[in-house]
Amino acid sequence: MVAAGEDQQRGDDARARAARTKRTRTRAALIAAADAAFSARGWAATRVEDIATEAGVSAATAYNHFPTKHVLIGVVFAPHVATLLVQADRDIARERPVLEALSDQIDALARLSYYHRGLTAAFTAAVLEYTIRTERTPDPADDLDPRNVVPMIAPLLRLVSYGQESGQLRADPSASEISSAVVNLLLVRSLNHKDEPAETTAELLRTLLFRTMTPPS
């Protein structure tokens, strides 16, 4: 026989699992609705309240999952960058020639910006708005900063650092400075040149990076 306490525990566990499942589904619905809204309508014209309605939940529920619109767009955009970071770490582990690895990263960034140009433009607007509001570089402790939610420069930063440490790239400028310059150029072009082919964007970014960082012959 099952003791009353054990039966109660099983009921509590089942309710907890159901609550977790509901929360996971709600979060996924909000992310999907936000992706579609930001991509189609842009940053300024998209409200969290509208996203909540499209996801079938209340605005309060949406804010319970994502405290600000800046965080929400960051969570939507972050998975695209996560795949690039995995590739960068894999290339470093294989000790792949850094110029080859960087070239592939540039191509991937340009394709991301082009094939998701509505979302990329919206993310860029969010970053610019937050930067103007705070008037500072990202504070690692600020969980609301979309630049922290989406570590856009991380893949290039790791590869450039690897290239500098191995002597394949110039030591100056710093990995942080050149990675930020490349990513900022990409983001600005996502606003000003939305329909620019990915190949054209990639060539521009590659020229900036390689001419700056390739050691003299």
Score class of each variant (00 low, 15 high):
Val48Arg: 02
Leu205Ile: 13
Asn192Ala: 11
Phe123Trp: 11
Ala78Arg: 15
Ala141Gly: 13
His193Arg: 11
Ala121Val: 03
Ala16Asp: 14
Asp143Ser: 11
Ala60Val: 08
Val57Tyr: 08
Glu129Asn: 12
Val150Arg: 01
Glu49Ile: 07
Arg96His: 12
Asp195Glu: 08
Gly167Met: 09
Val98Asn: 01
Ala108Lys: 09
Leu112Cys: 08
Thr46Asp: 03
Ala32Asn: 11
Arg96Val: 11
Arg206Met: 08
Gly167Cys: 12
Gly74Thr: 12
Ser174Arg: 12
Phe77Arg: 07
Ser190Cys: 05
Asp195Cys: 01
Leu169Ala: 02
Ser39Gln: 14
Pro151Leu: 00
Leu84Phe: 13
Val2Pro: 13
His80Ser: 10
Ala122Gly: 06
Val98His: 04
Arg96Gln: 15
Ala34Ser: 14
Thr26Val: 14
Phe66Leu: 01
Arg94Leu: 10
Arg189Pro: 02
Pro67Met: 02
Leu157Pro: 04
Ala34Pro: 09
Ala55Lys: 04
Thr137Phe: 00
Glu129Leu: 03
Ser176Arg: 14
Lys194His: 06
Ala14Asn: 11
Ala62Glu: 03
Asp104Met: 07
Glu100Pro: 03
Ala32Tyr: 05
Asp145Pro: 03
Ala198Phe: 06
Ala40Glu: 14
Val86Phe: 11
Gly167Val: 13
Ser113Arg: 05
Leu205Cys: 13
Pro67Gln: 09
Tyr162Ser: 04
Thr124Glu: 09
Phe210Thr: 12
Leu109Thr: 06
Tyr130Gln: 00
Ser179Asp: 08
Val149Thr: 13
Ala29Lys: 10
Asn192Lys: 07
Asp104Glu: 15
Val160Asn: 02
Phe66Asp: 01
Thr134Phe: 00
Leu112Ser: 06
Phe66Cys: 04
Val76Leu: 11
